[in-house]
Design a protein around this nucleic acid. Structure first.
Lengths: 248, 248
DNA sequence: CCCAATTTGTTCGTATGTATA
DNA sequence: TTATACATACGAACAAATTGG
């Protein structure tokens, strides 16, 4: 773990605690501290960065607020991990009309490596010649097909990914990104429109072509705010809806 | 300004800074500190609540994060105000497909006081016998009708509200609630579905009946987390979309 | 079951820097 | 220039939760 202890001289235009925060984020992005494990204790971090406890806590406070780190009194401070129990619902914003959330059942519909399309290239900051991994998931809620996810990943970041890996993963997709590729999704940007079901999606969702459908466009970002996933979700909102996550 | 300085003995199961926070929220809800004005300086608040500067700042920090208070170094800490320039966009989540936000033009379509309907009564915690004020706005973006808002308010809270007041307001609706009724919207809950345009909405929006339409159901809450507005927005997403506000 | 060590949470307060009026 | 107000940084003392012996 080669954390530089030179954070004590803040660069111009910044502050000491922001400097510490950047160092922590760098260590996380570099995989020096793994998801699910504890980072060094506060006292240790104070020594490493040569800052006081107050300054250190202020730096960590913000990362805790962003769900990047999780503090447990008496136990330590842990790197947030995507797992079914806790983090699953952090980026899954669908409920039934009464507001109840349930675990989706999943089935992989298609999987291919191909040249990246124009929109995905723009969203993922790729060039037109880059390759991408594109796959489609069908999600069931209470035994009924409700959501079709068209997902695109930058091939360079996920080069070794296989269809079987997606099919046989024991946990969420974002857990797979994290455990197998060291990529932690910490933030998403989403935009929603109403549209009509194209035949392909109507068939998958068991609705009439042309029926109204909710389209969710998402870019998912990693520690260093790099876009690492682009997806469009097509949702049958007859019995379900999108619940806007509460800021904070 | 009758702030009680008894916050120094935290109740069981809570903490001192939370106690201070509650006192500040109570003062805001009671209208003792008005939107747009500065609250007492930190040093003054420390004396009033008999707490240290650190504890006070921790209490205020969270209210600042929630956009309830706004701090300005060298000037003071201010009660957040809904106005066109800053806060307008806080609860207005529509952009064009490129992500550009513009000010909507507005026209009042209907206005009535009537018995509250079943859904609104549930959302606003009213009984079936309570009265409500129901009105409809049509919003134009770049000269085109894009959004129809069906809005319901609890009559008891807005008893003196008139149609002319809504029509002639110089600022946003939430600014009107705040300046004329002392009600500050600080949080909303929103749920989204895709639907088809009913004739009434199709006509207002200049689209075909049955065209796909985005439905946004919103409950808006005041300082004391009391629901004070219920609305359904019907949105033509041909040229615009809903941008999910970023947590934080 | 209790104790001791560890770790985070809360509260206190001081000194100094930066922005504003 | 001066006074005021928030921002940053420091660190001490104690409380509360957890873990392992």
């Amino acid at each position: 773990m080669n954390i530089k202890a030179n954070a004590s001289i803040p660069a111009v235009g910044t502050t000491l605690y922001k400097e510490v925060q950047r160092e922590v984020l760098r260590a996380l992005a570099a995989g020096e501290w793994k998801p699910g494990t504890a980072i060094p204790a506060e006292k240790k971090l104070c020594e490493m960065f040569s800052v006081s406890i107050g300054t250190l806590r202020k730096a960590i406070d913000e990362l805790v607020a962003e769900n990047i780190l999780i503090r447990h009194q008496g136990r330590g401070t842990f790197v947030a991990q995507h797992n079914r129990a806790q983090q699953m619902f952090r980026f899954f914003n669908f409920t039934d009309h009464a507001g109840n959330k349930t675990y989706p059942q999943l089935s992989l519909i298609s999987y291919a490596k191909r040249r990246v399309d124009k929109v995905a290239a723009e969203k993922l900051h790729l060039s037109a010649s880059d390759k991408a991994i594109a796959f489609t998931n069908l999600l069931y809620l209470e035994e009924q097909p409700v959501i079709v996810d068209d997902i695109v990943l930058p091939e360079p970041l996920f080069a070794s990914l296989t269809e079987e890996q997606i099919r046989n993963r024991p946990n969420t997709l974002y857990n797979l990104y994290q455990t197998d590729f060291g990529i932690s999704i910490i933030r998403t940007e989403e935009r929603l429109r109403a549209g009509t079901a194209q035949p392909r999606y109507a068939e998958l969702l068991g609705i009439k072509p042309g029926a109204p459908i909710l389209e969710v466009r998402r870019v998912a970002f990693s520690y260093d705010d790099k876009p690492v996933e682009w997806r469009i979700s097509y949702v049958n909102t007859d019995k379900h809806e999108y619940a806007v996550p509460t800021a904070q």
